[in-house]
Design a protein around this nucleic acid. Sequence first.
DNA 1: TTACAATCTGTAACAATTACTGTCAAGTTA
DNA 2: TAACTTGACAGTAATTGTTACAGATTGTAA
Lengths: 138, 138
Amino acid sequence: MPRRKLRKYDFKMTPQRLAIIEYLKNNKEHPSALDVFRAISKKFPTISFATVYNTLEMLKNKGMVLELNIDPERKRYDPDVSPHHHLKCTKCGKVLDISMDLPVDTAQLEKRGFSIDRIQVDIYGKCPPCKAKQKEER
Amino acid sequence: MPRRKLRKYDFKMTPQRLAIIEYLKNNKEHPSALDVFRAISKKFPTISFATVYNTLEMLKNKGMVLELNIDPERKRYDPDVSPHHHLKCTKCGKVLDISMDLPVDTAQLEKRGFSIDRIQVDIYGKCPPCKAKQKEER
DNA sequence: TTACAATCTGTAACAATTACTGTCAAGTTA
DNA sequence: TAACTTGACAGTAATTGTTACAGATTGTAA
């Protein structure tokens, strides 16, 4: 039983961290560190890039965000840690969520001596708007 | 270089390019540009990093190698362009091939307006040797 | 208050990659 | 053949995303 009050988080909350968490919450854009920095800068003009990186690292270690490697140019962050996949549009560069069943036989891999932490399915192609635009161009 | 060689490939063959292609052929290590540079430097001590990057870019565009994003620290290159997946060991850092059926319903995505170029399945975990080593440590 | 630890900002350092420049060799044309 | 053109080369500078570090600041507890 907690002596005083329930700790809402298991880390020290600060205005900067709160702002980053709020920004990420329900964010479907898969923002990069730069995106986060720019957004938070509006409210906290003095925030440092280091704080953004430190906070993202911390949230990743706490399992509160996922670090995506789908974009080779920069890391992207996803507040949705439930299993789903991603598509990066090779035209507009956007990263979209793809919810689709993908039965991966992890048991088979475990049997072969691997241990599995995480599976990331990255699809490269064109999003519907870009595909449509491409069609009318021809 | 003899003209025959020029016909064999649809690009100009040079000793440097040949060496890189030979190095990659049947290479299962998923080497980075630095790995390629170091290996080729033994035979061609004056080779430039730019040549390595240019050649890898060219081979990628010709569909002769795949550029992998599984390792966020550096790009890696795979001469095996047939469909297969990869596992990056979080302990030793090696990237291993995983051949496993993973039925992705691309038709469903196409129906939803996407166009699919490539699907990359990246697994993060431990390779059998590292998993075994970890066990005996405890 | 004082002490301490954690977080902050600002900036330097770093590493991977890309861009640029001048040189050279091979191929092409007159 | 000679003059021109092309493309690959080495060498290096520039760029970019990320990490590391130093000192200032904040919050908490004794």
